[in-house]
Amino acid sequence: MASLPHARALAALRDRIEVLHAFSPSPERRATFAQAHGFPIAETIETIWNDPRVAAVLILTPPNTHLDLVRSAAAAGKHILLEKPIEVSTPRAERLVALAEEAGIRVGIVLQNRFRPAASALRELMQEGRLGPLIHASARTSYWRPQSYYDEPGRGSLARDGGGVLLTQAIHNLDLMLSLTGAPETVTGFATTSPVHQMEGEDMAVASLRFTNGALGSISATTCAFPGQPDIIELIGERGRAVLDGTVLTARFHDGTSLDVAGEDAGSGAGADPMGFSSQAHQALILDFVEAITSGRQPAASGRDVLAVHALIDAILHSRGQAVRVRTGAPGGAPVADYFEPPQASG
């Protein structure tokens, strides 16, 4: 399913990028893909690993296959652009990033929301300090997925996908928020599977956050919100407030100034059609990845960078209503025994 926006983006970037091979283990899917997009087809994956012309590979497979595929790509010396999430668990994600770094190859993660014009404008606003010190941050993902979506084999399962709404849908919005705010210090979260869906993973999650500077935050994520709406991020600082509503940014400041960025009419994928969005952000992400390879820098959404959102999701799922510290490399975080002050004596 994820191949469609990438194929469209690569077709639009044909003057910058040459697609040498496309491969799927299924001969039927290979034939359908070739007919739809016209890219050359490889009959075996070894054709890709052994082709010295191939500088990089784009991996658009289920999360539980990522570690083995990246291991093979790294051994072949290919840079990797990898669909989110990195892997089905934080430990496997960390191993993937480490083996790529040991091989000296670049790994970028497909989190294209970072590259929307309104998101870029918000990042610039934050870097300039126009909002002032952060005092509150919130991220809301209110999507709709019908039961037929989860009836597909493996979808929403722990073994194949690593979980539900957090790792599959909300990861885009959470990653974007963290790229603007940095990681929170502590998290208290709840996650559940509602009566709306029959699935193994969670379709609803909420969390409260506390950042190192004392700022507070909140997260909500669901695939039960019919008919679905675009992601929302709200940042409140000591000098103003900014709201990123899908592809539109609205910011108001205490000094009377304002900023409005009307994003592209790109769709959101928030409703029953998960692919209901344009490929414009994918084009920007792929170009950033190519420029990272040619210049020797890391991609904007590098594997090492994106481990932060995996650690946050891990902490939410393992919290079960208890405050935990968010620590990359410590699955689920660690309990925060001293987080709450003891109650004051009455009278």
Rank of each mutant, 00 (worst) to 15 (best):
78 K>A: 02
162 G>N: 05
308 A>P: 00
118 A>E: 00
53 R>C: 06
95 R>E: 15
99 L>S: 07
24 S>C: 11
68 D>H: 09
342 P>F: 07
144 W>L: 07
156 G>A: 07
227 P>C: 04
45 I>R: 07
248 V>G: 04
108 G>P: 00
70 V>S: 05
117 P>K: 11
6 H>Y: 12
262 A>M: 13
5 P>T: 02
310 H>K: 05
151 D>E: 13
108 G>N: 06
188 T>H: 14
105 I>M: 05
288 D>G: 06
335 P>R: 02
296 G>R: 12
224 C>N: 15
201 G>L: 03
186 T>R: 14
41 I>V: 15
275 M>P: 05
329 G>I: 05
120 S>G: 13
86 I>P: 00
102 E>P: 04
119 A>D: 04
268 S>V: 04
180 L>I: 05
326 V>A: 02
131 L>H: 01
329 G>D: 10
165 V>S: 01
206 V>C: 11
104 G>C: 08
114 R>T: 11
226 F>A: 08
306 V>Q: 14
193 T>E: 05
110 V>D: 15
215 A>D: 00
317 L>E: 11
173 N>A: 07
17 I>C: 05
332 G>F: 06
242 A>T: 03
328 T>V: 15
109 I>P: 01
145 R>T: 01
178 L>D: 09
68 D>K: 14
45 I>G: 07
264 E>H: 09
246 G>F: 10
81 L>V: 07
78 K>L: 13
17 I>H: 02
57 V>R: 01
219 I>S: 02
329 G>M: 09
267 G>T: 03
268 S>W: 12
233 I>F: 01
104 G>Y: 00
160 R>Y: 13
227 P>D: 02
240 G>Q: 08
14 R>Q: 14
252 R>I: 06
251 A>S: 08
202 E>C: 01
156 G>L: 06
4 L>P: 03
256 G>R: 08
215 A>F: 03
116 R>K: 14
2 A>D: 12
273 D>C: 11
318 H>E: 13
48 I>C: 04
119 A>K: 02
103 A>T: 04
9 A>N: 02
279 S>R: 02
90 T>D: 15
307 L>A: 05
18 E>N: 08
35 Q>I: 06
205 A>Y: 11
318 H>T: 06
281 A>K: 03
145 R>D: 01
50 N>C: 12
43 E>M: 14
127 Q>H: 14
76 A>D: 09
206 V>N: 08
209 L>D: 09
289 F>A: 00
41 I>D: 04
226 F>I: 03
177 M>R: 04
279 S>F: 00
227 P>K: 00
58 L>H: 08
113 N>V: 11
173 N>L: 06
187 V>P: 00
4 L>S: 11
2 A>K: 09
192 T>F: 15
174 L>K: 00
24 S>M: 10
145 R>S: 01
247 T>F: 07
305 D>S: 12
204 M>V: 09
225 A>L: 10
268 S>H: 12
46 E>Q: 15
279 S>Q: 11
288 D>Q: 08
304 R>S: 13
151 D>I: 02
40 P>W: 09
116 R>A: 07
63 P>N: 13
251 A>G: 04
326 V>K: 00
270 A>M: 06
207 A>Y: 06
176 L>Q: 06
339 Y>P: 02
205 A>I: 05
191 A>Q: 09
283 Q>N: 11
3 S>K: 10
234 E>P: 13
17 I>L: 10
171 I>N: 03
190 F>A: 11
